[in-house]
Amino acid sequence: MSKDAAATRLALVQAARRRFAFDGYRATTVRDIAADAGVNVALINRYFVSKVGLFRACLDRAVPDRDLGAPDLDRAVGGLIRHIIRSPTDEDSMQLLLLLRSSGDEAVDAIRRETLRGYAERLAGAVRAGRTTLVDDDLLVRAEIALSVVLGMTMMRTSTRVEPLASADVEAVAVPLEEALRALLGGQAS
């Protein structure tokens, strides 16, 4: 793929991510996305096949694998906390918001569920790393609860801007959040 094609794909994903996160899937049109990206609407089908394909591309980095696929609990928890303490305009925070919005479209909602399940499985795998614990339903439920906490914190700090949480300093958020995540996932706070 040429540099121009890669730049166009990136511009479309960034424009779509913003629209889907703040306006929702159903209210967002491919024309809106193309206009925001400053490109011809036909390029969405060329690069992503459809609006659904573009939505899937927006979720590909909703929570980077380096955080959830970390080889141990310390790195996985640290990665999740970094997502929450970033600024509300951060691209990663917007991507997380995509996971919170109901789309009204079954195919898109299935993609969201599949994405969340994959994150929970990778997080459970990080918890299991170095232990004899198997990834079972109990561990997956705990990982899903931990992700729910992360998504809820992201929503409270970014889209709803609930105070004083939205403007709380890093330590005021990171310390109790680490304690909560470790309690859920079975590790001691460092």
Results as ranks from 00 to 15, higher is better:
Ser93Ile: 12
Leu43Trp: 01
Leu181Asn: 04
Val13Pro: 01
Ser102Val: 03
His83Val: 01
Arg61Asp: 14
Arg31Val: 14
Asp74Asn: 06
Thr29Ser: 15
Ala76Asn: 06
Ala37Thr: 06
Thr132Glu: 14
Ala143Asn: 03
Gly118Tyr: 00
Leu140Met: 10
Leu80His: 11
Ala183Tyr: 00
Phe20Arg: 02
Ser93Glu: 05
Asp67Tyr: 14
Gly78His: 05
Asn40Asp: 15
Glu163Lys: 07
Ala7Lys: 08
Leu100Met: 07
Gly78Phe: 06
Arg75Thr: 14
Met156Ser: 11
Arg31Glu: 09
Ala57Asn: 06
Leu116Asn: 03
Gln95Gly: 12
Val77Gln: 03
Ala34Arg: 07
Gly152Tyr: 05
Thr154Met: 12
Tyr47Met: 04
Gly79Lys: 06
Arg112Asp: 07
Ala126Ile: 01
Ala143Val: 06
Ala70Met: 05
Ile111Gly: 12
Arg122Ser: 09
Leu134Pro: 13
Glu144His: 05
Arg9Lys: 11
Leu181Met: 06
Glu121Ser: 07
Asp4Met: 05
Ser190Lys: 13
Asp60Gly: 13
Leu177Phe: 03
Asp60Asn: 07
Ala107Asn: 13
Val149Thr: 10
Ala21Asp: 09
Ser103Asn: 08
Phe20Val: 07
Ala42Glu: 14
Val39Thr: 10
Leu134Ile: 07
Ala120Met: 10
Arg82Cys: 08
Arg182Leu: 13
Ile111Leu: 15
Asp32Ile: 05
Ala189Ile: 01
Asp74His: 11
Ala174Asp: 05
Arg66Lys: 10
Asp4Val: 03
Glu171His: 11
Arg31Ser: 14
Gly53Gln: 12
Tyr119Trp: 12
Val141Lys: 08
Leu177Glu: 01
Val175Gly: 00
Leu151Glu: 07
Pro176Trp: 01
Val52Lys: 15
Arg101Tyr: 02
Leu97Ala: 08
Asp65Val: 08
Met155Gly: 15
Leu10Glu: 14
Gly152Phe: 00
Arg113Ser: 13
Val13Phe: 02
Met155Phe: 10
Val149Arg: 09
Ser2Cys: 04
Cys58Glu: 14
Gly152Ile: 05
Leu151Trp: 01
Gly187Thr: 11
Asp136Ile: 06
Phe20Gln: 05
Asp136Arg: 02
Ile33Leu: 10
Val135Lys: 05
Arg122Tyr: 00
Leu73Lys: 03
Asp60Ser: 12
Arg17Pro: 07
Val13Met: 06
Asp92Ala: 04
Leu10Asn: 14
Phe20Pro: 05
Glu106Cys: 03
Asn45Met: 11
Arg113His: 13
Ala172Lys: 02
Arg113Pro: 00
Gln95Pro: 00
Arg46Ser: 08
Val39Cys: 10
Val149Ile: 11
Ala7Cys: 01
Arg122Lys: 10
Arg131Lys: 13
Ala34Met: 05
Asp137Arg: 15
Gly130Asp: 03
Val175Met: 00
Glu163Thr: 14
Leu68Pro: 00
Ser102Gly: 15
Ala62Lys: 01
Pro71Glu: 11
Arg31Asn: 04
Arg56Met: 11
Glu91Gly: 06
Leu12Phe: 02
Gln14Leu: 15
Ser159Val: 14
Asp36Cys: 03
Glu121Arg: 09
Phe55Thr: 14
Val170Cys: 05
Ser103Leu: 01
Met155Ser: 13
Ala172Glu: 01
Val150Gly: 13
Leu12Arg: 12
Met1Leu: 09
Ala166Asn: 04
Ala27His: 13
Leu140Phe: 07
Met153Tyr: 12
Arg157His: 01
Ala107Lys: 13
Glu121Ala: 10
Ile145Met: 08
Ser103Arg: 09
Ser190Thr: 15
Leu151Asp: 09
Thr160Val: 15
